[in-house]
Amino acid sequence: MTTQFFNRALIVFLSVALSATFTLTGCGGGDDAGGGGDATPTKTDDGGSKASGGGDRTPFPAAKATASVSGKVMFKGDKPTVKKIRIQGDDFCMAQHPTAPNDETYLIGDDNTIANVFVYVKSGADKWEFKVPSTPVMLEQKGCTYMPHVFGIMAGQTVTVKSSDETKHNVHFKGKKNKAFNFSQVFNQSDDQKFSREEIMAPVECDVHSWMRSYANIVYHTLHDVTAAGGAFELPKLPPGDYEIAAVHEALGTQTQKITVADGDSKTIEFTFSK
């Protein structure tokens, strides 16, 4: 009885308040778009000059880049247990995964090859200025997962972040050397971003779905690759010279190897990680 009385009292109060609000307010000046609701995120600086390092660098001698380094990334020892990810709190995401998906941290094949390892020229290419690729790197949110899980990109190159999910995502770059970005995306929305400084395994996360994570690897050149299933990588266009090649895994750490290549060389190296 008491509850009914208060419900009715509240309804009468709300009715009067709403009537007054709607009736007494004017048209509000018209242009709603001017309210600062622009969802376009702040873009980073182009970073082109920073990307190429400045100083006394010379253009990358593409015509002389006839050598290549390829190889595999392997795992030695007892393989870590592959755990599952608990998808919760979002009906759309849960519907995309009737069974819990595997955690992508350790993608180790039956032949002990490791996927999602970023391999790049760590030193030896510093003297060259590279042209920033015009093709953007795609980072897609699909099935409430980031695809790819690990990607390489040149500083100054565009990364296009797209959502193919009919739910809301929040793209949050949590690197420490580059300018952070943090914006929401709805279905079919895409936004371009750029990085300006070298940074390895910098996380990109969704603040709404904490299991979603990708790793950006930003370098000053185009001499990089990410291993797929099978653990293979290839750095196909290297001019003759001495290089330090690094392989980086999100949980297993970094390994490096020094290598010298001559004109037309096709050298093979192997990285072996253990836990």
């Binding site: 309804i11 709300l14 009715s15 009067v16 709403l18 009537s19 007054a20 609000t21 709607f22 009736t23 307010t25 004017g26 048209c27």
Partner: peptide, 13 residues
Amino acid sequence: KMLLGVLAPVFLL
């Protein structure tokens, strides 16, 4: 706006 002012309480009720 006036119509909304009249309809809103009706909706509430």
